[in-house]
Design a protein around this nucleic acid. Structure first.
Length: 468
RNA sequence: GGCUGGGUGGCAGAGUGGUUAUGCAGCGGCCUGCAAAGCCGUCUACCUCGGUUCGACUCCGGGCCCAGCCUCCA
């Protein structure tokens, strides 16, 4: 029984889908004006894990996952101007880069990936409804605003009261608004800016409205899960609720999920602080699976501290898991869903608000069991447990590489000092020395390989190698 | 200032009213020509002060400290 921590109620709640034949989840994706950083990687990987687990629970055909792309906003326009290119050139470049990064991290493509610029009809129509129902007004500057005073539950998601928000006002007040807390639905175009026709003149959508329009258009007025980074809880998601529920007249979302931040030196990683690492930078240094492991090794709502030490630790952990699998002749296809008491504990961990760290602990117990079975000669049982380990790992998007590939190549930066053939030659030379009991020579070769980052393991007449 | 969330062993990171998290690192043993890997064993914990309780790291209250939101941000 899956329980999810619902940001709206601040409690773990039993997950009951509206329609078990079509479980629906929407996640706020990227604004594509730059390369994705590790914070974005966390959203991608965390909700990919959620998506995989929902598919496991309800069946792949019964889960719809929509993750949008914001491809028009102030920052995009500004960046395009700075770079002297059209905003569409800018966004298509970064959308492609985002897809590359996501693929590298083993993130399954979502069922739908709507873009703001391709959703103008739905956006304008929703604003129109809000105007007709009296939730929106046109300000003196030509922008259309949402009137938050008309929506009484405003602030519920973020736990804020309107009076407190007013007293905490830190931004220069926009005079065109009736109330400083009102937010823009449609932004009138300035000369030279990209724009679309609307009943309120040429302009572009405010940021929040696109998610209301796209999510309800793709998933219906009322759907199950809405996710995103913690920083979107307010105002973005608060505003989405206000817009959507005012427009549709029904409840918007049942479960709100927010992932915690990535930090660097105990400070939030963000574009505005400039302390971010892009995914592609990190992938120069670490295997993508290591990055994925690192992300899932912390609970999704906890802060995640980025450091080389953490990544090194993740890599060591994966080496342990892959080592247990390396001599097993596992079926290529996972086959039927297998289960034993260990697997049940893995599922129990994920059922508890996606507790991936605890689920991973179960993977290590499986690995140890496999190693025991192997050394006890119980190969068939070891293979069976190995299949379970890989299958459970797959729910987290891990352990799907060949163990040999990971152990020998997962984590090598750039061109290795020795290629595979050179290593094999050295091993052959060393084994000749070993047969002749020339231990000094054998050890010399092994030490020489070690300085080149190659570790040898003699086992049962076979010498194996891996890169450290 | 208001509102959230958090303070766990050398590091990372879960969890629980009384019994081993887990990974990395350390130590001892087995295995090995020696290693490595693996297995077995093992040392370092639960911010502070009160309260509830037979018993609290776990529940309640005060304090201290940290992070986040209140402004674009995943």
């Amino acid at each position: 029984m899956l329980h999810i921590y619902n940001s709206l109620t601040r409690k773990k709640e039993l997950f009951k889908p509206i329609d078990a034949d079509n479980v629906r989840m929407y996640v706020c994706g990227m604004t594509v004006y730059d390369y994705c950083h590790i914070g974005h990687a966390r959203v991608l990987v965390v909700f990919d894990m959620v998506y995989r687990y929902l598919r496991h629970l309800y069946g792949g055909e019964h889960v719809t996952y929509v993750r949008n792309v914001t491809d028009i906003d102030d920052k995009i326009i500004k960046r395009a101007q700075e770079k002297g290119e059209t905003y569409t050139d800018l966004t298509s470049h970064f959308i492609a880069a985002m897809h590359e990064d996501a693929r590298a991290l083993g993130v399954r493509p979502p069922s739908g990936e709507p873009r703001a610029t391709a959703s103008m009809e739905q956006i304008i129509s929703m604003i129109q409804i809000l105007m007709e129902k009296g939730y929106a007004y046109k300000g003196s500057n030509g922008d259309v605003f949402y009137d938050i005073s008309r929506f009484s539950p405003y602030g519920r998601l973020s736990g804020k009261r309107i009076a407190e928000l007013r007293s905490g006002e830190r931004v220069a007040v926009e005079e065109a608004k009736d109330d400083p807390l009102d937010f823009v639905l449609w932004k009138a175009a300035k000369p030279g800016e990209p724009c679309w026709d609307s009943p309120w003149g040429k302009g572009r959508p405010g940021w929040h409205i696109e998610c209301s329009a796209m999510s309800t258009h793709c998933l219906g007025d009322h759907f199950d899960i809405h996710g995103g980074g913690l920083d979107l809880q307010f105002p973005h998601h608060e505003n989405e609720i206000a817009q959507s529920e005012a427009a549709t007249g029904c409840k918007f979302v049942n479960y709100w999920m927010h992932n915690g931040f990535v930090r660097v030196d105990d400070e939030k990683m963000s574009k505005s602080l400039g302390n971010f690492f892009t995914i592609r930078d990190v992938l120069q240094q670490y295997d993508a699976e290591v990055v994925r492991y690192f992300i899932l090794a912390s609970h999704y709502r906890s802060p995640l501290n980025y450091s080389d030490q953490q990544l090194d630790n993740a890599r060591a952990a994966l080496i342990t898991l892959y080592t247990s699998l390396r001599d097993l002749d596992l079926p290529v296809e996972p086959g039927d869903v297998v289960s034993n008491s260990t697997a049940q504990r893995f599922y129990a961990a994920l059922n508890d608000d996606f507790n991936t760290p605890e689920a991973m602990a179960v993977l290590f117990e499986l690995a140890r069991e496999i190693n025991r079975l192997q050394s006890g000669g119980q190969t068939a049982e070891a293979v069976r447990q190995g299949a379970i380990l890989r299958q459970l790992g797959g729910l987290l998007g891990l352990l799907q590489n060949s163990p040999q590939r990971f152990l020998q190549h997962g984590g090598v930066v750039g061109v290795p000092a020795l290629d595979d053939e050179q290593i094999e030659q050295q091993i052959a030379a060393r084994n000749r020395a070993r047969e002749a009991k020339q231990w000094a020579e054998a050890d010399r070769i092994r030490d020489a390989l070690k300085t080149k980052g190659v570790i040898l393991e003699d086992d049962a007449g076979v010498t194996r190698w891996r890169r450290e």
